[in-house]
Design a protein around this nucleic acid. Sequence first.
DNA 1: GCGACAG
DNA 2: ATCTTGTCGC
Length: 213
Amino acid sequence: MAVQEELRPLVDLVGPGPSAPATVAGLDVAYAEGGDLLAAAVTVLDARTLAVVDSAVDVGRPAFGYVPGLFAFRELPALLAALDRLTTIPDLLVCDGHGLAHPRRFGLACHLGVVTGLPAIGVAKTPLVGVWDQPSAERGSWSSLRDGGEVLGRVLRTRDGVKPVFVSVGHRVSLENATAQVLALTPRYRLPETTRTADRLCRDALAEAEQAR
DNA sequence: GCGACAG
DNA sequence: ATCTTGTCGC
């Protein structure tokens, strides 16, 4: 927690970040049943066509147990290792988890952004902190995710009539731009294409690693 | 003190 | 995160 408090001031919450990124990266991690093995994946997509143009994986051991609020310490090492293996530097990182919408305002997306220096946003499937009203059913509608007086992010409907996602700023991106980027990445499914391709890749990499042992 | 709790 | 079973809808 002290590490998070120390790094938090380095977060750029203003951005606004790239309005028309050339490439966008998705990051995700898969775990073996025993919890003793993990595979982290990064996929880089052409922001216009959403085709995967680069990718990398890292297979290893979890660096930390799963503790809500300290999630980054579990996945960051492997994600950074995978990022190091990319041959391109993406214009935006789309993380599977929260950014600002965190108990100490320093979730995975903020941590990854500060450590890499790259623009980053968080897209989580479930809430961690904050209260919100249900956004209307149409894709594109959203409501503010709040905690006390502060706005931590947005509850965004990415598909008509489908459970919304939780979008928050990570680093060097405005909340407005983060919302726009997520909508651009969800032409067909609830979750961003970046998350979907990274999820598929880390699952495949994990299966391969389990087969090899 | 008790419940909630990204993945 | 992972596993299981069934149901709904394109």
